[in-house]
Write a protein that binds this DNA or RNA. Sequence first.
DNA 1: CGTCGAACCGGACCCAGGGTCCGTATTCTA
DNA 2: TAGAATACGGACCCTGGGTCCGGTTCGACG
Lengths: 200, 200
Amino acid sequence: MAERKPRKDAARNRKAVLEAADALFARAERPEDLTMADIAAAAGVGKGTLFRAFGDRAGLLRALYEARLEPVREAAEAGPPPLGPATSPQERVPALLDAILCFKLDNRRLALALEESGSNSLYQAEHYERWHGLLRSMLEQIPGLDDAAFTAHALLAATRADLVERLADQEGTPRERLRDQLAGFATRVVSSDPATSRHD
Amino acid sequence: MAERKPRKDAARNRKAVLEAADALFARAERPEDLTMADIAAAAGVGKGTLFRAFGDRAGLLRALYEARLEPVREAAEAGPPPLGPATSPQERVPALLDAILCFKLDNRRLALALEESGSNSLYQAEHYERWHGLLRSMLEQIPGLDDAAFTAHALLAATRADLVERLADQEGTPRERLRDQLAGFATRVVSSDPATSRHD
DNA sequence: CGTCGAACCGGACCCAGGGTCCGTATTCTA
DNA sequence: TAGAATACGGACCCTGGGTCCGGTTCGACG
């Protein structure tokens, strides 16, 4: 049952690939034309090795992404306020979205490459389920807000990598402004008074 | 300066391609593996013709999409309430998003193909600019809502084709429920009482 | 340390699919 | 109806993801 440990060279190569890819994505301005062969070459490894270790392009991207995301995940699941659990949903929802936004700003190319890779690879990535579940559970605690599941999706959609890139890179919106806007939006969603919402 | 009119056969072929592609996308369950050669064959035309008429894959997708979208556009810009101009922003914003959602539900494959095609082709499609501009101008009329531009992006993000597909096809959410949820979300955003929004 | 099998390496190779080219056919103009 | 302009179409090119397999490295064991 227990996976027997990989050979030393395999482990070394895996790490080399991860590091090389990380560096390449950080530098690349067009992540989609960063080829697998490029990555293999940069890591000093054959293409075969790369595919054996990660399955396919999406697999590599996912591995990279999850690795980078790890700290954020921990902070969100067990860290200090306002991100951690000891916070009211009204504050924690914007805080979580802010954390995700910052992450995507800091890892633009990678996030972009991941979300663009193949058919809706975003929605079947584990981290998406994680964020969605977490967000939904927060939203469920907010009185007068039904459809927590949908709302969670909608809020997460506002942090899509390509949107972030458009706003930050193409339109040049400064980081802090973007953060404020998203926080404002989230707060609005989370704190709207249902009595005001008359429409039909 | 004036574009001289295209030759008769060119026009006929263009139409043939459009129709064939339309039919194919409607039937296909995996829009991404519907190849250009397939479309050309179905239209009874050579690949060259297809590329000459539309430039590239994204161009064809855009043309198809815009054509289908035309009625919605008209309804939104000059139709009767609640979609048309003679409606208060509080009602019209949800109505517009609903129209977009319905459109994407009815043209799932096509929308998916378009949004997946190449680097952020969604955000440089004309219709995106149109919706965004329209939405923004509505939101600007709502007191207490700043960042109309960002809010418009965020709301539109909730209608992303891949999200719609996940909810409708993969999770099986019924159409009407989805519409209700989106409308509820939009209404919430649009009608939240700013006095309630304390966060710092 | 020597040996042997398993695990791994890497780059040559395969193939689909987007996009191009150019000799031929069609349409338009006069 | 001739000649130029335009369009046709499918053979062809090329990139890039993914596979394969002969050769190498690892490490367990004697």
